Amino acid sequence: MYYSGRPVSARLQLIGSSVDLLGILREPFALLPLGFLIVIIGTVMAVTRLVRRKRHSAQSRIR
């Protein structure tokens, strides 16, 4: 999940932003929070997995 956020960020860079004739900024703003959200979810999942693995291995040593 963590690595899924990287292509979203790369896509944001590829699309870029521009200013139209009326002076309005045009950019794919939704990709920015989406990429951050995916990276944060992936990081939380990885940390949770590591904590569970450590806790499980510590309990196995006690028995």
Rank of each mutant, 00 (worst) to 15 (best):
G42V: 06
I15G: 11
F29K: 08
V19A: 10
V47E: 04
F36M: 11
F36N: 14
E27I: 00
M1K: 01
H56P: 01
E27W: 05
I41P: 11
L37F: 15
Y3R: 04
I41V: 09
L21K: 11
L14R: 09
I40C: 10
V19L: 05
I24A: 07
A10L: 01
I41S: 12
F36P: 02
S17E: 13
I38K: 03
G35N: 04
G42E: 13
M45R: 11
Y2D: 00
G42Y: 08
I15F: 14
M1I: 00
P33Q: 08
D20V: 00
S18E: 08
Q59C: 05
L22E: 09
V51Q: 10
I24Q: 10
D20H: 04
G5F: 03
I41E: 12
L31N: 05
Q59E: 15
P28C: 03
A10R: 08
I38V: 11
I24R: 12
R11H: 10
I15E: 15
P7Q: 02
P33V: 04
I41K: 08
A30V: 01
R53V: 01
L14W: 08
E27L: 05
S18K: 10
R11F: 12
R6A: 09
M1Q: 01
V44I: 07
T43G: 06
I24E: 08
A46G: 06
G16L: 10
R53C: 09
G42W: 06
P28A: 03
R11P: 01
L50R: 06
F29I: 04
L32W: 15
L32A: 11
P28Y: 07
G42H: 12
M45N: 11
L14K: 06
A58K: 04
S4M: 02
I62Q: 14
S17K: 02
Q13F: 12
V51A: 14
M45G: 11
I38Q: 05
M45K: 12
L34D: 04
M45W: 10
H56R: 13
R53S: 11
S18T: 10
V39G: 05
R61Q: 10
R61D: 11
P7A: 06
L37C: 09
F29R: 07
K54F: 15
S60L: 03
H56A: 14
L21F: 12
S17V: 03
I38G: 06
L12W: 14
I41Y: 10
S17N: 10
R52F: 06
R49S: 13
R53E: 14
L34G: 05
Y2L: 09
E27S: 08
Y2S: 00
R55G: 04
P7E: 03
I40T: 02
L50W: 05
I24H: 09
A30Y: 14
G23M: 00
G16H: 01
G23V: 00
Q13P: 02
R49C: 13
A58S: 08
V47R: 01
R52T: 07
A30M: 02
M45A: 15
F29H: 12
R49N: 07
F36I: 03
G5T: 02
S4V: 00
G5A: 02
L32H: 08
M45L: 15
I15C: 01
H56S: 12
